[in-house]
Design a binder for these strands. Structure first.
Lengths: 101, 101
DNA sequence: CAATTCCGTAAGTCAATGCTTACGGAATTG
DNA sequence: CAATTCCGTAAGCATTGACTTACGGAATTG
């Protein structure tokens, strides 16, 4: 799975707000929509995008749908920036050494 | 500085391509535009967004403008996901303990 | 089975934005 | 000063997508 969908999903403030609400633990759509300045269907649509991006998981509990973070997807994003960080520092070091020469 | 602009900046494929090209080290606009499927002005516009987001730095060398990664901004993004990761694992542990009880 | 709860989907609207071409400014070169 | 290189900005276009309201399906409750 590429990062494409994940980056796009997290770029929208409202959607990222939904995502960050899940840090506190699994929650239903209704609970997630509370306090947000958009309608419940809007939250549903954001959750679909997050799910398709591999950032959240969904399962049913009775009449409710419970969403939670997908740690696998989250790990991908963390690793992306960890690697990017390392590479950037390496390139920086090399550029300094090039100036010394 | 919030994450808002950074997330938005990295969400666009072409713009992220420009960003990732800078992993190899500083480069001019013309060099960055090579191989990309958009015009040079488009790359300029993307660089402005990345710069405003605090993800790249710019300085002049003669008639050229050299762009390079802003390690400070990059570090912010890395830290965001590192913390998110830790919090998510904590919440997961607590949810398991809650089930045991 | 009827009522209720919870939520996904459809359709439509409107603002945001990624892209292009055209243009002009700044720095170097002769 | 003229020519060239390099690049940012303006203007316009076309697409995308975030949001709303309306609706319907699925599961629980009495």
């Amino acid at each position: 799975m590429t990062y494409e969908l994940k980056f796009e999903a997290l770029a929208v403030p409202t959607r990222r707000a939904v995502f960050e609400k899940l840090r506190a633990g699994p929650a239903s759509v209704g609970v997630l929509a509370e306090g947000l300045p958009v309608s419940r269907p809007a939250v549903s649509q954001h959750l679909k995008v997050l799910k398709d991006a591999g950032l959240v998981l969904e399962h049913r509990e009775g009449v409710k749908r419970i969403y939670r973070l997908d740690t696998e997807g989250l790990r991908e994003m963390r690793d992306y920036f960890d690697r990017f960080w390392d590479t950037a520092l390496d390139a920086y070091k090399r550029s300094l050494e090039a100036k010394d020469a």
